[in-house]
Design a protein around this nucleic acid. Structure first.
Lengths: 355, 355
DNA sequence: TTGAAAGCGCTAACAC
DNA sequence: GTGTTAGCGCTTTCAA
């Protein structure tokens, strides 16, 4: 604020920090700049934060900043202003492509708002999650975006924080905090209808056992099956590719098995694809798969694998919007944004977008 | 430090912050805790940081912390101790799987060392990169891990910072900072040898034009080809899947084209795979591909696509090790850790790890 | 428009 | 083992 990009870019090149053999810019403070510019620290502060200052003063201060290579100390500034301009992002594992994209969207929005992002992976480990929640409080963050484990999701409802919290991906009924989710029940419905349309009647399901989202997808699956007079065949697993591969490998050897399977997230679908291959079966011809997350590898498989693409970028952006909205008006009622998933139907596209 | 996990976990459940209708824990400070425990702020500080204190005092303070829901203010602590316990991580795009895994490894190491990670995406945009570099200085971070764009890599050499900097993935010759890279020239060599072994003589190459790593791979490729008496056929592109797809699509229509192609990173190889498909050609039968990054989708393609897997976790861990080493002994000479890539040869594995 | 003074919340030096 | 005091680097009254 106050000073332009150009100013700072220039600062970079000319400053002491940019010159190897400059007098080691030994903790240049605002007083040093003030002395050099022949003004008071308060004036330097004003110039730096875009406060009132005469043209001449402003120039002298900017010169002094450049010459000294001064960098304001954010800890001090935060302590004083009580504004950390920091967003906390807590997810289970950034390597889950859903969270990867989410973090990118969040970081982009944060950058635009001149904020930083502290990234935290919990590995679905409640202890680690609790540590990070505590950290967020100690950082006095501006706002938190979190995809909580189920246990924590419940506890979050009973906790109050000094900053707004937005739940993403995983959120139960509207509760104490704002949230952004996709319509899981509708999405599963779409998936099941698609499989039914392709003539499948035996549709098995593999669902994660740690998140409320997997739970919702499971319920949606069961409901959809029953609505069509079919028997749900669901198994709950740890939501990892490994667990999924193991479970489906076993399932595939059972007599009278389903010929189509649904997975509750990208990792699970990946494990399923591996299991099918390992069993020497062909996706599409022998087994049909469906699930969530339009990952790159699903594109490579093509036919026989149908997924629901989640509008991840929009989820991230919406989460930041909710955060900012609540910062402005802390008292509006908690709100839940429900976005739609999109069916990626590669079965309908025989030739992959040829020229 | 000082207090156990258990203590803090418990704190969580009982504290004012955890109780919805508790007296709004209006900025509980260390003085409030001190008053409540009947001791001085200094004593509370000591207890919290594991300093000397009698058993009884310690218990009283812990009780007071619990009852008040006190959370130390990290900005204040940092200002005072001049230790931010924060690691900066600057990459071009966290969605690049290499950086995704890297960030995870870095965050894990940071967590173990009781530090946090500030994540920054630059999009290969020097302005954004400069802004983030400035931020790192203002945060007074403990250390920086960065995969710089080529322009910045050069400038970094001439800049000095108040914290250690470790370059990852992209690093020229040993310079002012520590670095961790893989042996690109050896890796490309392996790739070329593999293709030669499969009988290919016309091997084209698509290389990124923004990073020193792509440059090294390009040089290695040219050298390897010449060493075998073959003509290098390289094209430089923006390192994105889109640019790569466009370029290879064009190349594939040219008469007398190569029958094998090498790409300098995962995004480029992905674009190549898409181009081959779109052209109605079959990977392996019509065109053979090779490149870097063992991503999930490459496993799905299987034969005809050979990649070099980078030890990403180890790169991340090594980078953190270098950081800590330099914090302990600031004056040791800059060091460059060179790790080996691993050839993932799916052509040799007809049946994918069947039971 | 500017400067002097106070203080954000914490820890470290020193005295007891 | 504990309290008192000072001050980390900044911003923000308040007066001038």
């Amino acid at each position: 604020m106050g000073m332009s990009y150009e100013f700072w870019m220039e600062t970079f090149s000319h400053s002491a920090a940019g010159t190897p053999n400059a007098a080691s810019n030994h903790a240049v403070g605002i007083r040093d700049v003030a002395t050099r510019a022949g003004v008071s620290p308060a004036t330097v502060s004003r110039v730096l934060t875009g406060g009132p200052a005469s043209r001449e003063t402003r120039e002298r201060v900017e010169a002094a900043v450049r010459e000294t290579g001064y960098r304001p100390n954010l800890s001090a500034r935060r302590l004083r202003t009580r504004a950390s301009r920091t967003i906390g992002l807590i997810v289970s594992d950034i390597r889950n492509p859903f969270f990867t994209s989410l973090s990118r969207a969040v970081e982009d929005a944060a950058y635009r708002a001149d904020m930083r992002v502290v990234l935290c992976n919990t590995d679905e480990n409640p202890t680690r999650e609790a540590m990070y929640l505590r950290l967020m409080q100690e950082e006095r963050i501006t706002g938190l975006i979190i995809a909580p484990t189920r246990a924590t999701a419940d506890r979050l409802e009973t906790m109050t924080f000094d900053f707004p919290v937005v739940l993403v991906d995983r959120a139960g009924p509207t509760g104490a905090h704002d949230s952004v989710v996709i319509d899981n029940s509708a999405a599963v419905d779409t998936l099941i209808s698609h499989l039914l349309g392709r003539g499948h009647r035996r549709i098995g399901g593999l669902f994660g056992n740690t998140s409320s989202t997997a739970q919702e997808r499971h319920r949606g699956y069961a409901a959809a099956m029953l609505a069509h007079g079919l028997a749900p065949e669901a198994r709950m697993i740890e939501p990892s590719a490994e667990a999924s591969e193991r479970e489906l490998a076993r399932w595939l050897t059972e007599p009278d098995r389903p010929d189509a399977f649904v997975g509750s997230n990208g990792q699970i679908v990946l494990g399923m694809a591996r299991a099918v291959r390992s069993a020497g079966l062909a996706i599409d011809d022998d087994v049909v798969l469906a699930g969530f997350d339009n990952e790159m590898w699903t594109e490579m498989i093509g036919r026989g694998l149908t997924v629901i693409e989640q509008p991840v970028e929009e989820i991230g952006r919406s989460a930041m919007d909710l955060l900012f909205r609540r910062l402005e008006r802390p008292d509006v009622a908690p709100c839940k944004i429900v976005l739609a998933g999109r069916l990626i139907d590669r079965d309908e596209t025989p030739a992959p977008r040829a020229a």
